[in-house]
Nucleic acid binder design. Structure first.
Lengths: 190, 190
DNA sequence: CGCACCATGTAAATAGTTACATGATTCC
DNA sequence: GGAATCATGTAACTATTTACATGGTGCG
C-alpha cells in the first residue's frame, strides 16, 4: 500500500498538518495518488502508532489549533525498506473508456458533451502543471537531487495530460464519424 | 461505480461465464478496469438480483459446468442511464511515481532496476496491444460502430503505453544524472 | 447573513484484495 | 506425479468513499 508511503514522502519533504496534507493531495501529490482528509487522518494515527510520524500541537490564534506532523527516522527507514520491494505496474481504472465502449449500446453522440467536458478539465490541468513547472523549476540546471526527482514526476504528469488530450480528440473525431459507411446496413440506396 | 457497467459492456458485446469474464478482465477490458474473479462472482450475483444479467447453466463433459451470463434488456437500460450521468476524470494511482519521489531519501540508483523492470513490462504490453490491433482491426475502413469504439479505446491504451515508455526513459536518464553538478556540495575542489 | 477557508474528526457503506477451498482434466 | 487450465465460490481483511458533525475567522 502506498498511501502511507506517499504521506511519508510528503512529510519528509515538508512537515505539515493533516489538513495541509489533504490540500497537497489535492495538488502536487494528488497527481499520482489521491486521498481524502478522512483517510489521511485515519492513516496518520496508524502511522503515529507505528512510530513513523510524530505530531506536535501548535496553538494558533484566530484559527483552530493544528497538529504538525513530521516523518521520523523510523518512518524514513520504513520508506527505504518499501523502496527496495518491487511494486506492480499500476492497475488502470478509466471510467470514461468503459463509457466509450458502452456508447455502442446507445446513441453514441450523447457522449460528445461528456468527452468535451473531460477534455476541458484535462486542458485546464495541463495548464496548471505548466504554470507550476515554470514557477518551481525555472532553471533545470540548478536543481538538487530532490527537485530533479520532483521535476521528472511532474514531467510525467504533463506528458500524461498531453497524451490524454490528443486521445480525447481522437475519441471525438471517432464519435463524429460513427453511423457512416459500413455500420448497420438498414437503409440501402433509397 | 463502474465494475457493474464494465461487466455489462463485456456481456452485451459477448455473453460468457464468470471465469471467462475474469480472463477478459486480464486482457482487453483490464486495460481500463481491473477485477479479480472473486469480485466478479460477487458482483454478478448482485447484478442477477437486480435483473441486469441472466445466467444459464451449461453442462460440459470433461470440464466443470459453467454458467453463461448475458446482459438483459434491463441491464442495457441501466447501462444507458449510467451513460447519461457525468463521471469524474479518473483518480490516478501511480505507485512508481511515489517511489521516484521517495528515492530522494535513499540511494536513488537503487531504483534503476525497478524502473527498468517496469519499462520492460510496459514494452511487452505495448507489443501485445499492437499485435491485437493488427489482428482485430486490420482494415479500419471496414469497421462497424461497435468495433470503431473498441478500436479507439485500444488506441488510447497504445498511446498510453508509448507515453509511459518515453517517460520511463526520461526517469532513467534523470536517475543517472543525479549526484552531479549542484546537489549536496559536500566535496569541494580537493 | 451566507459562503469560503481553516482544522479535525466519527460512522457507515461500498469496493477491492488476499488467502483458502474444491475438484476435474490435460500436458509434460 | 506435478503443474496448468477450467470453473466457482467463501471468509476475512483492508482500503476508499460518502455523509455527517463541529466550530471559529474573514469577506462581501
Amino acid at each position: 500500500m502506498a498511501l502511507e508511503h506517499a504521506i511519508l514522502v510528503s512529510l519528509l519533504e515538508q512537515p505539515g498538518s493533516g489538513y495541509e496534507l489533504a490540500r497537497r493531495f489535492d495538488r502536487s501529490i494528488g497527481r499520482f495518488w489521491t486521498a481524502t482528509h478522512q483517510q489521511i487522518y485515519r492513516v496518520l494515527r496508524r502511522m503515529e502508532a507505528d512510530g513513523w510520524v510524530a505530531g506536535q500541537e501548535i496553538a494558533q490564534d484566530g484559527r483552530p489549533d493544528k497538529k504538525v506532523w513530521s516523518g521520523t527516522a523510523a518512518g524514513r527507514r520504513a520508506l527505504v525498506d518499501w523502496l527496495h520491494e518491487p511494486v506492480e505496474p499500476e492497475t488502470v481504472r478509466h471510467e470514461l473508456a468503459v463509457k466509450i465502449r458502452a456508447a455502442a449500446f446507445d446513441d453514441p453522440s450523447a457522449l460528445v458533451p461528456e468527452v468535451e467536458r473531460h477534455r476541458a478539465e484535462h486542458a485546464a490541468l495541463l495548464e496548471r502543471y505548466l504554470v507550476g513547472e515554470r514557477r518551481d523549476f525555472p532553471d533545470p540546471a540548478a536543481l538538487d537531487d530532490q527537485q530533479r526527482l520532483q521535476h521528472v514526476v511532474l514531467r510525467g504528469g504533463i506528458e500524461y495530460e498531453r497524451m490524454i488530450l490528443a486521445w480525447l480528440d481522437d475519441v471525438l473525431a471517432t464519435l463524429h464519424r460513427l453511423g457512416t459507411p459500413p455500420p448497420t446496413p438498414s437503409t440501402p440506396g433509397t
